[in-house]
Design a protein around this nucleic acid. Sequence first.
DNA 1: AATAAGGGTTGCTAATCGAAACTTAGACTT
DNA 2: AAGTCTAAGTTTCGATTAGCAACCCTTATT
Lengths: 165, 165
Amino acid sequence: MGIREPLGELGCGLSHALEVMGERWSFLILRAAFNGLCHFEEFSQELGIARNILSNRLAKMVEHGVLERTPCESDRRKVEYRLTEKGLGLLPAMLALRQWGEKHADVCNPNLVLVDCRDGEPVQTIGIQAHDGRALGWHELGWQTPDKIGTPVERHDGYHTKENA
Amino acid sequence: MGIREPLGELGCGLSHALEVMGERWSFLILRAAFNGLCHFEEFSQELGIARNILSNRLAKMVEHGVLERTPCESDRRKVEYRLTEKGLGLLPAMLALRQWGEKHADVCNPNLVLVDCRDGEPVQTIGIQAHDGRALGWHELGWQTPDKIGTPVERHDGYHTKENA
DNA sequence: AATAAGGGTTGCTAATCGAAACTTAGACTT
DNA sequence: AAGTCTAAGTTTCGATTAGCAACCCTTATT
């Protein structure tokens, strides 16, 4: 077995991502934001989320720079929550999660498909690619220290390779 | 504004994915599993998670087919939790999340990098691609009904296009 | 038989969620 | 200017859930 991640500190990017987006409604709020919703009432009605939780989540997402909160110019009662660049950067993660869910859900409504708007063709299923664009599966991946990048790695564990009893 | 997803029912794959993986420790358990951990005590010690919660999460992930629970042959006290194909399918989502977290975390320890083990080169940052492989940003995407696939879409909202006050 | 290890379950407390009522500030009407 | 309405939250309080510690059951090991 090759190199293994240090899980102890939990200190990889995943922990940070989960800290920001790991709570119950965060991803659904994000999805709503990607669909153009930006007012408190819109989120509240579309998601059916409790108002205090919504308030809490929006505040946290603003605090972490995923959303930007700006009082509305035209009507000062209203507030706009809009995705920042950081928030927009979550699209691949959300889509990957969504594609996984669609693939494995019992009931699924593929009544809308995400497409390239230039030609209307569906986007690809999100996957992991090597630097040259080859699609990579888990058994073709390994962990490497930054100083040894560029040197091949033997497989780091025995997943799906029966040869190690 | 073009087509918008029906958010009401929450019935997209994202809901299903979150139902399976949306709880507090699920993704960290998944990460540990990807790192080769497969015993209860290993998860418990590495993650520092409470035993009842761990038990609960593992059971749920097994129930949803992300992990497979098999009593160990050699030592009947032990149980092995291993990723199924469905579980392995979460890797792109997890990596996308992780890459996002690494990009935006204040403190970050890039002491290990995920590489293609054939040549030791880092994998690409996960992104969304058109059918021909072009990288796509949010403003180049749109929702389309299955019957109209192949016909271009006008942009569905005004994110980052100042032209719609 | 005695001891220990692996994989849980049970009780109990602290934190979090959720529904509904309440508050505050800004528009809109008359 | 008073009254009403709307948007965006807070507060309150009962219902869940997380987390800790201790206990239990089965299977090795000595």
